[in-house]
């Protein structure tokens, strides 16, 4: 079930569009934020709100990679595996993450803190290897920075190593 506050966040988007269905992706994102993944009940609620059939919501949710229909760990680690990152060592970092977390790609740690996935190009090619954890990008990764990031996340829930507004190459001051 979607909470009233999620429902009202979704309704707030309606004036932006001539058709309610256009709020679909935002609605699914809001549902995912509330439960950690998109539940069947939430999809049914979205269908009612957007005046669509449940299957219209379901077919959309399953098309886009950012929606998860199963629970994931608190920190969803997505490592880019596409060419430019692979050229600068993404594969060895993926292996390192697997060893460090004790899980394979696609799995979640038993404490449900981390889920590890590989993803396609995230438009950070010049700053690879890189990973996205929840909303944040982490770039120019090494084993040392990965250690620090995971420690930060375990301790504080966030890490100062996340990338800010993107600029590459950085200007020399």
């Amino acid at each position: 079930m979607l909470s009233e506050s999620s429902k009202s966040r979704i309704r707030d988007l309606f004036p932006r569009y001539p058709e309610k269905r256009s709020a679909m992706l935002a609605a699914l994102r809001i549902a995912q934020e509330e439960h950690g993944y998109v539940t069947e009940e939430a999809m049914a609620d979205i269908a009612v709100l957007l005046e669509q059939t449940p299957v219209q919501v379901y077919e959309t949710a399953t098309f886009y990679t950012m929606f998860s229909l199963q629970p994931v760990g608190k920190h969803l680690i997505q490592v880019c595996r596409t060419l430019s990152c692979a050229l600068v060592g993404a594969d060895s970092l993926i292996k390192y993450l697997e060893q460090k977390l004790g899980i394979a790609v696609g799995e979640t740690t038993p404490d449900r803190l981390f889920t590890l996935k590989t993803v396609e190009c995230l438009a950070a090619c010049g700053a690879g290897p890189m990973m996205q954890i929840n909303d944040d990008y982490y770039e120019r990764l090494t084993r040392e920075t990965i250690d620090r990031i995971l420690d930060d996340l375990k301790r504080d829930g966030r890490s100062s190593l996340a990338t800010g507004p993107f600029l590459i190459p950085l200007q020399m001051a």
Binding site: T82, L83, E120, A123, A124, C125, A127
Partner: peptide
């Protein structure tokens, strides 16, 4: 893949 200009 290979493109990161619009992001900047």
């Amino acid at each position: 893949p290979g493109t990161f200009k619009d992001r900047q």
